[in-house]
Write a protein that binds this DNA or RNA. Structure first.
Lengths: 225, 225
DNA sequence: CTTCCATTTGACACCCGGTGTCATTACCGT
DNA sequence: ACGGTAATGACACCGGGTGTCAAATGGAAG
C-alpha cells in the first residue's frame, strides 16, 4: 500500500502517474458527469493509462474519494495521545474530532466536495462504512485506554459508534448549510453527545462552548421533507 | 413494493414464488457456501426461477438478507407513539429500541444468523448503511417531535445517528457472545448513551436498569486483535 | 369455449466494476 | 549491451444489475 514517490536508485520501470494525479483527474470527471456516470474507463482514459492500471492505484472506484484517509487517522491517533490524561473522556473526544476536521481555509471547498460525494452518493455512502470502521477503531482504542477496558468491549465500541454517528450528523448538517462552520457544528454535536442529549438535566444553559458554537450557524431548516 | 400474496380475482399470471420462499432458499445457500460464494444464479436455479425474475423479487442480492425490515420499522414507529409524552426522550428511545429487538425465543437463532451476515460480510456491512437510513429517519422523526425541532435539525439527526451506532455496538457485542441476551446488552448500551457515557457523573451506580442488565452477560473479552 | 386483457416470466444482450494472467515496456546497475 | 526488477496494458473472465420483448399464464367477458 502507498506508492513511494520514486526512491532514487530503484530498479524497474517508474510509475506513469500517481494516486494524487489520478485523484485529480477523477474528481474533475466526477464534478462534470457525477460519480455514477463516470466509469473507470473514463478515468483511465482521461489519465492516459489502462483500465487495469487504475486498479493498481486504487482498490476500487470508491476508494478514489478517500485520498489520504489512512494517514489522517494516524494524525487523529496522535491527537488523542496529546490530550491530558485527566481530561474527561468525552471532552478529549470532542476536542480531537473537532481538531481533526479543521482544514486549511483554502481547502474547505475541496473538503466539502469530498464529503458531499461520500455522504450523498449512495454507492459511496455504502462503501464508507468500511472506511469508518478504521476511524471507529481509533476512537475505540482511545476510549478503551481511558476506561481501562478491552478495546472490543461494549462501552468503547458504543462510544466509537456513537461518536461516528454524531460526526456524520454534523457533517450532513454542515453540508446542508453553505457558509456554516464545520468545527462549530461538530463542537455543538459532541457537547450534546457528552450530555446524553439532555438525558440528564435538559434545562436551560449549563453549556460550555455549546452556546457560542450554536450561535454560529443555528438557523432554522430550509429544506422540506 | 411488497407483493400481495394473491388477491382473489386478480387478473394476470400468478407469481411462481414469493419473497419469503426465495429468502429461505437463499439462506440455505448462504449457510452452506457463504454469502459471497453464492451467486444470484445459484439462488435462482435453486428456486427454479430465472435470474431475471430474482431481481423482480429483490432489488439486489444484498436485500435478500433484510426480510420484512420496512414493515418492522412501522412497528417501531408505533412503539414510539405508544410512549408517554412526559417520559424523557432518551428513555423512550431506549425502551423502544430494546422492545424492537425482542424476538420470539424460537426466532433468536434466525435473528442471530441474519445479524451475523449483516455485520460480518463486508458487502452487506456496506449495503446496510442504506437500510439504516430508514431506521434513523424513524428515530429522528420521533426525536424531532419530542424536542419541537425540525426532523432535519442537528440534534434529532445526531440522536438518530448516535442511537444507531449504539445499537450496532450492542449487536456486535451480542454476536460475539453466544448465549448473551441482546435486550440486556441494548439496555446497558442505551443507558450509557443517555448518560453521555459517563460524561456527566462517571461515579459508581446511579444506574437504573443498567446494573441488572449488565450483570446478565458482562464477561471479559475473549477475542484478541 | 374462445377472446381479451393483465401480469409474470425468462431469454438475451448489455453495461460496469473487479480480478487473474502474461507478455511487453521501461528503467536500474553492471 | 545485459540482466534483473517493476510497472504496464491487453485479454479473458466473473458476477451483479438493467432494458427489452416475446411467450406463458390465468381471470373475466363474450
Amino acid at each position: 500500500m502507498s506508492t513511494a514517490a520514486s526512491s532514487p536508485g530503484r530498479p524497474g520501470r517508474r510509475p506513469s502517474t500517481s494516486q494524487v494525479e489520478l485523484e485529480k483527474v477523477a474528481f474533475r470527471l466526477f464534478d462534470r458527469d457525477g460519480f455514477d456516470a463516470t466509469t473507470v474507463d473514463d478515468i483511465a482514459t482521461a489519465a492516459g493509462i489502462g483500465r487495469r492500471t487504475f486498479f493498481r492505484y486504487f482498490d476500487s472506484k470508491n476508494d478514489v474519494v478517500w485520498g489520504a484517509f489512512t494517514e489522517q487517522l494516524d494524525q487523529m491517533r496522535a491527537g488523542f495521545c496529546a490530550r491530558p490524561d485527566n481530561e474527561p473522556l468525552m471532552e478529549s473526544l470532542r476536542a480531537v474530532v473537532v481538531e481533526f476536521n479543521r482544514v486549511a481555509p483554502g481547502e474547505t471547498e475541496r473538503h466539502r466536495r469530498r464529503l458531499e460525494l461520500i455522504l450523498r452518493v449512495p454507492a459511496l455512502q455504502a462503501h464508507s462504512t468500511l472506511r469508518y470502521a478504521d476511524w471507529r477503531a481509533v476512537v475505540a482504542e482511545f476510549a478503551a485506554d481511558r476506561l481501562g477496558e478491552e478495546t472490543g468491549g461494549l462501552r468503547p465500541q458504543a462510544i466509537a459508534h456513537a461518536a461516528l454517528g454524531t460526526a456524520l450528523a454534523a457533517y450532513e448538517h454542515w453540508l446542508g448549510r453553505p457558509g456554516s462552520d464545520l468545527c462549530a457544528v461538530l463542537d455543538t454535536a459532541f457537547t450534546d453527545l457528552a450530555r446524553g442529549f439532555g438525558g440528564a438535566g435538559e434545562g436551560a444553559a449549563s453549556g460550555r462552548g455549546a452556546d457560542s458554537a450554536a450561535g454560529a450557524d443555528f438557523g432554522e431548516e430550509t429544506r422540506g421533507s
